[in-house]
Write a protein that binds this DNA or RNA. Structure first.
Lengths: 342, 342
DNA sequence: GGTACTTGTCAAAACGATTTCAATTTAATT
DNA sequence: AATTAAATTGAAATCGTTTTGACAAGTACC
């Protein structure tokens, strides 16, 4: 059913119908009412591609999913959906295939210059991020989830990774731990760098030397957590505490600790960063997991909101949001074993 | 840069340029070459929305993400991306918000009648699924990931849930287990029903009575696994084996077993269904987890492939694919404890 | 050299909406 | 009743492509 036909059936012109449906003021309330009702009854819906062409708006927000299919991604999207519900804006996901033939920059470039999306959300930025420079050059609105030091102005929403890890580490130090290992995210990402800094600052504050062998960078998999924790626990002196970058690495650490016959929360303390997943909760782990917590779903919702503001004309360099992170202490953290205290 | 301007710069007509870029035969190789080169050099790219309007194709495949933000979803999408890489087809994700104002059917309806997508992938179907009937009525190509008994013809790709669980259960029976609990997916979904059937058939084969108290339905969360396993393990006689519907529920079961001072693989056997995630592997669990395995990422890739075939004109009722599921035995399964044997 | 057939090119007509600008109707005021 | 202002409506232009049908130039054949 096309506009022309629909309008004809109503005995109105396409113009009036279009106006009635888009809520323009110059159409009488009575007419608007009738049009709205009939549209539902006859099942008329504007062809989105015609609308897009004429308005120049794509009606979609783009998100490029990392090559590794991070498990956090869907939660973030659910959050976006919550905000976008009823807005008539789609989420266009361009996942990068494992062995992608195009490079990342090309994907962004295509997304924008072909007019597929009105705005883009950039995940896992680096301090110097080429994507940000590209999007700025292309003049498309975009929001960075995380932060970057790229010189061009850009809107961002980030959590206080540095503060979170500093507090987590400090807390462990308070408990008497001295050899604290950290499982960070992939090297080079801003959030990893911030976490590194939080960790090192906490140590420095107490005058404890930084030992690079206690830190590892990598993807958030249970395997990384297990292998790294396992190999450290075999050494002597072994670390008495771990800071894990994600729930998955924490699972790996728990396993490693157990497999050495040690007990989490007594022999080895663990704090992880928890993005709050419905399917895996820190509270429920045994022992329950102390965590720095920040809902990635809430971040998704807010991100969508900020993008809408961006599309509404709010300047990008005005949008900088840094969320504090909760530290929730549970059973996985306890005083350092006496023999390990210095 | 628009087609008209671009063509003018080349001294050609828009027609010729368009044809050259879309690979039509009636343009000389020399011209085509030149056009292609200049397009790259000048950065011309057709406005996708104009193309969509005139061709009537949306250039996107839709997927509606469940309300719960299932963690399997992103893996499936990565698989799709792998196949779609280079096809110039997007993935449009419509996640349902937690408290969605529209109902599910409306989402599908909007997606299709407004011309946002060329095809749709339906997840988690039910035996009698209204969405399938709707999509058939609307005449849009769609592929069901899973199966349904809905009377209208439809393309589907599914794994052999029934066979997988039957074999898993049979194997546990072979090991002497008699009280075998099962954590299934949400009630009402076809895959849950198939799994139930596989479970019951295996029992029946040995003449073992089905005990409904040993089965639970619900979302795949660690919490469900933990609570259910925990409460069963408190009873007497307690089950000696668990069949878990997912890796997450398996984690919960492991915890429950441990928290009762029991040992997985010795006192309590566990088999789970493993969709193969990069961030959480059955092999790495301690003890390593016996599992029925089928890569959901591979399914995503194949699904995309089948959708392309559908779009290419292959009839839907010709596309029915049932994938076998591997059963991989590891350390979490062992003989039933002697005292529990009947 | 004329006919027939390719090839390569182009002008113009879609595609289905929105929006500008002008025209009409209705209401309000004198 | 005439004039003016306000409220509705509509015709036509527009968005940036693809594609149809026509046309010219080049090649092959008799």
């Amino acid at each position: 059913m096309k506009l022309k036909e629909f309008a004809h059936q109503l005995g109105l012109s396409p113009t009036t119908v279009s106006r009635a449906l888009s809520g323009y003021p110059e159409v009488s309330e009575k007419t608007r009412q009738r049009v709205a009702e009939e549209a539902v009854r006859l099942g008329y819906r504007p062809n989105i591609n015609a609308v897009r062409l004429v308005t120049g708006r794509a009606g979609a927000i783009g998100a490029v999913m990392g090559r590794k299919g991070e498990f956090q991604f869907s939660e973030f999207m659910i959050g976006m959906a919550e905000r976008l519900d009823g807005e008539d804006i789609d989420i266009l996901v361009s996942p990068m295939a494992e062995q992608e033939t195009r490079d990342e920059i090309q994907i962004y470039s295509r997304l924008v210059t072909s007019g597929r999306v009105d705005a883009i959300i950039v995940h896992s930025p680096r301090p110097d991020d080429e994507r940000i420079r590209l999007l700025h050059k292309l003049g498309v609105p975009f929001l960075v989830h995380g932060r970057s030091e790229t010189e061009v102005p850009h809107a961002w929403l980030d959590i206080d990774n540095e503060g979170a890890i500093r507090r987590a580490t400090s807390h462990l130090l308070d408990l008497g731990h001295r050899r604290i290992a950290m499982i960070n995210g992939g090297a080079g990402y801003t959030f990893s760098i911030h976490r590194d800094k939080g960790y090192r600052d906490a140590l420095e504050e107490r005058g404890i030397a930084f030992d690079p062998r206690l830190v590892v960078h990598g993807h958030f998999t249970d395997e990384l957590g297990f292998r790294f924790a396992r190999s450290l626990l075999e050494q002597s002196p072994r670390p008495t505490a771990f800071v894990a970058g994600s729930m998955m690495t924490a699972l790996g650490v728990y396993r490693a600790v157990r497999s050495r016959g040690l007990v989490v929360g007594r022999d080895t303390s663990v704090i992880a960063h928890d993005d709050v997943f419905p399917y895996l909760t820190a509270e429920n782990m045994v022992p329950s997991l102390s965590a720095t917590r920040s809902s990635i779903r809430a971040a998704g919702a807010r991100a969508a909101d900020l993008v809408l503001q961006l599309l509404g004309g709010r300047p990008a360099d005005e949008i900088h949001e840094l969320w504090p992170v909760e530290l929730i202490l549970r059973e996985s953290t306890g005083p350092a074993p006496a023999e390990a205290r210095s």
